[in-house]
Nucleic acid binder design. Structure first.
Lengths: 136, 136
DNA sequence: TTGACACTTGAACATATAATCAACTATCGT
DNA sequence: ACGATAGTTGATTATATGTTCAAGTGTCAA
């Protein structure tokens, strides 16, 4: 049933729940011209991993190189590098090569805000908490 | 190599890259008291799927029930319901039962902002297609 | 009560993903 | 040039995720 149309209780064409059908039509129209879903999802996906969140937290404090990140997060340089690749692809972090080091930083204030807003969402008790958190 | 400490080229205690070590120390301290990574990642994970992004886009326009969403998105009610479960768990959408219908809406302005900021990030050309774009 | 409707849930399966290991490139000091 | 350092990349593997299908709950009309 690709296009099942739910009949609301009243079922009268535009009675009590009439505005509903208008809403559905409006949404249907807007959905048609909305092709950014995959791109938006990809950005969220790049943020949807505890390791990458920790990386972003670290980079929100200071610009760091791959080895620093590996050290600070207690994981292999390879693992970090793989993750940085994703974050770079999504333009969430930017890389600058100096000598044989590569320094990473958050791309812009935009990214900081998305990150901060989500942290606030969590802190406001909107998402399940293992135990009360601290922040930087 | 849980805690490998990258030695920078100069290797002189506080030469050219001296401020780096201070940065690393600061980050290390902040990471220690940062346990929200998993929660934050969970919220992002709930947003990290094209279907759920489309659902959020639809709900940003109007409050809709499960069947409406299935209809508008062209997918099964079961699939939608499974996704709504995740979105509800993360408090990204709220549900209100009226009779045998369940109406969904975005939880708050917070969610709208995260969503809008990320859409802007994408629109600004920051995020390439699913496979597109190589850079720097 | 009966049947239809609106939605939820559990199991199963195909795909996607993150860490590991090993091999690779590039840069620096000597 | 050589060896050491800093990062990247490909293959592999265990785990996670999204959809489908089938069966379930709760609500409403007749």
């Amino acid at each position: 049933m690709a296009t099942r149309r739910p009949r609301h209780p009243g079922a009268i064409p535009r009675a009590r729940g009439a505005h509903r059908d208008d809403s559905v039509a409006a949404v249907r129209a807007s959905i048609a011209g909305y092709d950014a879903a995959a791109d938006v999802a990809n950005v969220f996906r790049a943020l949807a991993d505890p390791t990458r969140v920790r990386i972003l937290h670290a980079l929100s404090i200071a610009e760091l190189c791959n080895g620093d990140l590996a050290s600070v997060l207690g994981m292999s340089e390879s693992a970090v590098s793989h993750q940085m690749r994703e974050l770079r692809l999504m333009k969430i972090v930017s890389a600058e090569k100096r000598g044989r080091m590569v320094y990473f930083r958050l791309t812009d204030a935009h990214v900081r805000r998305i990150f901060a807003d989500t942290l606030r969402h969590v802190r406001e008790g909107r998402a399940p908490r293992p135990h009360g958190g601290q922040e930087a």
